[in-house]
């Protein structure tokens, strides 16, 4: 008998898939040949033992909860309202941080000038009386002073930008008439000029103005740093802590 055929029959017999005729013939062979029967018994035993391998018992609720939680987390859309809100908050925080950083940077770059000198835009500091302005006691009339300023600018002795500042801020030269015989006082102003004046200039320009006033008044002019709260600071200190190019308020008192 073909060995391969017998083995096939044994397997089909074990699996209950053998035909009736083949089954009868195999049973006759097993009865006659102990080796075939032994092989069948070994395979049957192996199958039975393998079928008795341990089983797994599952906790009825724990696993279900776990899978459903995992399912929920995977199905959740990426852009949820919570995530959108968190993203918006992050952007706002970023913008605020940038703005704050920019302010800090500006303050660092400008030093204390903004705080102390009442520069443009620092109204709150000015109101609190913490700031210092410059006060120029000119010791001369405004007419003499502005005539001299114009001449020095024409001669190139003073910065032309200084004249422009006065033109723009005070308009005192509007309507003035020039008399060619007037010499250093060639300008005739349309109206009497105010005895006190407030202009925004740089410390460097204030010093230049002080120079003009000093010359006109033969050394009687005075430039000083004056706090809004009445306190005074030495001019030298003021100039040390203020950038020469930053804007300050200059009060000029004429005679």
């Amino acid at each position: 008998m073909n060995r391969a055929l017998i083995r096939r029959w044994i397997n089909e017999y074990l699996d209950g898939e053998i035909g009736l005729a083949d089954k009868a013939e195999l049973e006759q062979i097993m009865a006659a040949e102990p080796e075939v029967r032994r092989e069948y018994m070994q395979l049957r035993r192996a199958g039975l033992l393998l079928g008795s391998m341990p089983e797994v018992s599952v906790h009825p609720e724990r696993f279900r909860r776990r899978v459903l939680a995992a399912l929920d987390s995977r199905q959740r859309p990426y852009f949820t309202p919570q995530r959108a809100f968190a993203g918006a908050m992050l952007i706002v925080l970023l913008i605020v941080s940038l703005a704050f950083g920019l302010v800090l940077y500006q303050q660092k770059m400008l030093g204390n000038a903004l705080v102390i000198t009442n520069a443009a835009g620092d109204e709150a500091a000015a109101a609190s009386g913490q700031t210092y302005d410059l006060l120029l006691t000119a010791g001369t009339t405004p007419e003499q002073f502005f005539n001299r300023l114009l001449v020095e600018c024409q001669l190139g002795m003073a910065n032309h930008a200084l004249l422009t500042e006065f033109l723009l801020q005070t308009r005192i030269y509007e309507g003035a008439v020039c008399d060619r015989r007037g010499g250093l006082n060639a300008l005739q102003f349309a109206n009497p000029l105010a005895k006190a004046m407030r202009v925004q200039v740089t410390p460097r320009q204030a010093l230049a103005l002080e120079g003009i006033a000093d010359e006109l008044s033969a050394g009687r002019s005075n430039l000083s740093a004056l706090g809004r709260d009445g306190s005074q600071m030495k001019l030298q200190d003021f100039l040390q802590i203020n950038d020469a190019g930053s804007k300050i308020i200059l009060y000029i008192n004429f005679t």
């Binding site: 089983e55 797994v56 018992s57």
Partner: peptide, 11 residues
Amino acid sequence: DDQSFEILDTL
């Protein structure tokens, strides 16, 4: 404690 299953001996 977190396991959802238990191996049962069927022998």
